[in-house]
Design a protein around this nucleic acid. Structure first.
Length: 319
DNA sequence: GAGACAGTGATTACGTTCGG
DNA sequence: CCGAACGTAATCACTGTCTC
């Protein structure tokens, strides 16, 4: 049974284009006058022969999408016809036009994606990224954003129509591609918390795990009240992930935070109730201290300029 | 990162129903 | 009767997830 089924896949009679051609030849030769009369000779069902002849009636812009029209199957013709009947010819033709797919580039499956409007997502994602197409191709495929954009570009240009095919073509793992696309499709309010360089596959996978665990609505809610690492110096991806995880850090007692002189001239000691919590935000605190120092300590030359302009005595200026 | 595995949708091949 | 449309079981291909 399996052998019989599999054998059909390798017979050219599955080709609608060739089937229609053979049927027309038989009609012209007088070997048959009806579809039923041709069935035994052509070795196909009446339904498939009927669909093969429908191929000739499909609009040229649709047929032109196929990389090799001899591969067009009865199923493909059937789905196209069903979509045209269901969604309307003008809708389907506008999908073909908006997809921007070059002619003679797509497999049966790829054409069906365009016809059903599923391929437009890639174009939308590329438009959102606003990147030069040549730059997308030239970039190293290390970050999820870069991998996803390269994937979308390939779909748009008919290079592939699945994660698996993309993985083979680019020689990177299928999992990396599917994860990168999933990460890039996370809401912008979540992705914006991280810089492009900080949103690595590792960080992104943690976000996807949180999305699975909490649901997208809860994750979005938590992301809303978090500060982006682009806005706060020293903030790390790890900080944000822990906060999104809503880890219970207990009640804060800020009165217990003290900074004292330590041993030696270049050491300070920070006392607090939860040193581990504070240590987690050390980069952010270092950034904040730098900011304070920059504001409080100015270089001597600027003081000279101010003193000269105001004619103020040196003794009253802050040191 | 690779492989296994289950779930899901697509495809194939064939059959049945319906309208002219 | 003929051709078109629809239904279905078996199979294939792809995906997400998990484990190592």
């Amino acid at each position: 049974m399996i052998g019989k089924k599999r054998a059909y896949r390798f017979l050219s009679r599955r080709s609608c284009w060739r089937l229609a051609m053979l049927y027309r030849e038989g009609l012209a030769d007088g070997r048959w006058t009806t579809q039923l009369g041709a069935l035994s000779t052509l070795g196909v069902s009446q339904g498939d022969l009927s669909l093969a002849l429908q191929l000739e009636k499909l609009p040229e812009p649709i047929v032109d999408l196929f990389e090799d029209r001899i591969e067009i199957s009865s199923h493909t013709v059937r789905v196209i016809r069903h979509t045209i009947i269901h969604d309307g010819l003008s809708t389907v033709l506008s999908r073909v036009q908006r997809s921007g797919v070059p002619s003679k580039t797509l497999s049966n499956k790829g054409v069906l994606r365009v016809i059903k409007g599923q391929a437009l997502g890639s174009k939308k994602m590329l438009r959102r990224s606003g990147q030069d197409l040549e730059k997308i191709v030239a970039r190293p495929l290390d970050l999820p954003a870069h991998i996803a954009e390269r994937y979308y570009l390939g779909v748009k240009q008919g290079e592939w129509d699945s994660f698996s095919a993309c993985a083979k073509a680019l020689h990177i793992s299928r999992r990396n591609i599917s994860d990168a696309v999933a990460i890039s499709e996370l809401p912008v309010s979540i992705r914006h918390l991280f810089g492009v360089q900080a949103l690595t596959l590792c960080v992104g996978r943690k976000l996807l795990a949180l999305k699975r665990e909490l649901g997208i609505d809860e994750l979005l809610l938590r992301a809303l009240c978090k500060e982006s690492m682009l806005d706060v110096v020293g903030r790390t991806a790890d900080n944000i992930l822990l906060e999104l995880n809503d880890e219970d850090i207990g009640p804060l007692d800020l009165r217990r935070v003290r900074i004292k002189k330590g041993r030696g001239s270049n050491r300070l000691v920070i006392e607090c109730k939860d040193a581990a919590l504070l240590f987690r935000y050390r980069h952010e605190m270092e950034g904040a201290i730098h900011k304070v120092l920059r504001r409080r300590l100015r270089d001597p030359e600027s003081f000279e300029v101010i003193r000269d302009s105001l004619g103020t005595r040196r003794s009253v200026l802050p040191r």
